[in-house]
């Protein structure tokens, strides 16, 4: 059970306060994609071992979603990013 620092609330809190919300940065396939492309978007995942970028929601706090880079073997949290930061980068 790890600690996550919510970038909005600014505090390290128990993982139980948060909800895992899947791999981050999955691009939604367009309506005119083929069945195969749509299926890939809908179901296929990188499911990488080691450092991964994932979405978490501060469910029992501010309810904001943000991104956590976590080594999913050691549970070490390497970075925490907001979606806003992603948009200002690009």
């Amino acid at each position: 059970m790890f600690l996550i620092t919510c970038p909005y609330c600014g505090e390290a809190r128990e993982e139980q306060e948060f909800s895992y919300a899947g791999e981050a940065l999955i691009k939604r396939a367009p309506l005119d994609s083929s069945d195969a492309e749509w299926g890939d978007y809908l179901f296929n995942r990188n499911n990488t071992k080691g450092p991964t970028l994932e979405q978490w929601q501060h469910t029992l706090g501010c309810r904001k979603l943000f991104m956590v880079e976590r080594n999913n073997v050691t549970n070490d949290i390497l970075a925490i990013k907001t979606f806003e930061s992603l948009r200002s980068d690009s």
């Binding site: 059970m1 139980q16 909800s19 895992y20 999913n72 073997v73």
Partner: peptide, 13 residues
């Protein structure tokens, strides 16, 4: 555990 992982250990709760 609700989160994905390869750690062979989960959360105590």
């Amino acid at each position: 555990d609700s989160y994905s992982g390869y750690s062979q250990r989960g959360s105590p709760h």
